[in-house]
């Protein structure tokens, strides 16, 4: 068994995380750029198109000058898949990611947005740590990391409700659409809407977050859930909240639903929004 274990140096992980922090903050992923382009063609509000053009110009300036796309360089949220036969030499995966995050936020002149205590002290930790790490063990000896820096403005518009099973599909649609409309311009629309359905209270929230890192333009593999995504998106965009909440046809780029088995008594549903600068970057070692 011992021969099957693969060793990855601590520094290799930390350095890759640092690089990831810089890339995620300054480079808008191509799937997001494509969605902004599509929205520009579909949007009929003159003001809305003006904002969409500014997003494209902003992405170009950010890439040219290595400036963060948004000053809120976010909470560093990591989705990690670690092989059962992967070992980090010199520390834990949590320590390696934390070290890489601190270095990345310092080197990239990224904003440090984390305070040490939520209620009483609220003193800035000055290196944007701790990160949030969602770790899953998978077969094999690989290591796959996705970083999705999460801004406070969109995160604050999150919502979760424990529906009754009787509420069904319509209950889910109404809750999600209502949450997005009530968020208005606050989460910097057009947004990506992450929806988690099923599981428990915390599982639904996790799924909603995870849904945000799915490639834009892809749909849920279950045809019924893919149809649910389409229905919710149509209702959201009929609201005319629009870019920046100041009116228009495109309030959200996409709705991503992720589902999980749930208790006979429950129908949990969680909504997590990503702003138009839907940042993410990743690596495999």
């Amino acid at each position: 068994m011992r021969d099957m274990v693969r060793h990855i140096p601590f520094k290799a992980v930390a350095d890759a995380v640092t690089k990831c922090c810089l890339e995620a903050a300054t480079r808008l992923p191509s799937d997001v750029l494509a969605k902004i382009g599509d929205a520009l063609k579909a949007e009929t509000s003159e003001l809305g198109r003006d904002f969409l053009r500014q997003y494209l110009e902003n992405a170009e300036i950010a890439a040219t000058h290595n400036l963060p796309l948004c000053q809120d360089t976010g909470f560093a949220v990591f989705f990690v898949e670690m092989g059962a036969f992967t070992v980090i030499d010199g520390g834990t995966i949590t320590e390696a990611i934390t070290a890489g995050t601190a270095r990345g936020y310092e080197l990239g002149f990224l904003r440090k947005s984390i305070v040490s205590d939520p209620i009483f002290k609220r003193v800035n930790t000055k290196d944007n740590t701790p990160p949030i790490i969602h770790l899953t063990q998978v077969p094999g000896d690989g290591l796959s990391v996705i970083l999705a820096p999460k801004g406070g403005g969109s995160e604050n518009m999150s919502a979760l409700k424990m529906l009754t099973p009787a509420a069904g599909e319509q209950g889910v649609i109404d809750f999600v659409v209502d949450s997005v409309i009530r968020a208005g311009g606050n989460p910097c629309p057009p947004t990506v809407v992450g929806v988690g359905v099923g599981g428990t209270f915390e599982k639904a929230a996790f799924l909603a977050k995870k849904a945000l890192i799915r490639q834009l333009g892809t749909h849920n593999q279950d045809p019924q859930y893919a149809e649910l995504e389409r229905k919710i998106l149509e209702k959201i965009n009929a609201s005319h909240v629009g870019p920046q909440g100041l009116g228009g046809d495109i309030t959200s780029f996409a709705v991503h639903v992720e589902q999980f088995p749930c208790h006979i008594a429950s129908l949990p549903v969680a909504v997590n929004l990503n702003c138009h600068a839907a940042r993410h970057a990743g690596f495999e070692l």
């Binding site: 110009e57 902003n58 300036i61 400036l67 963060p68 796309l69 809120d72 920046q244 702003c275």
Partner: peptide, 13 residues
């Protein structure tokens, strides 16, 4: 006044 949220690099210029 509303400034463009998420256009921090453009505004920095």
């Amino acid at each position: 006044f509303a400034a463009t949220g998420g256009a921090g690099a453009l505004i920095a210029e």
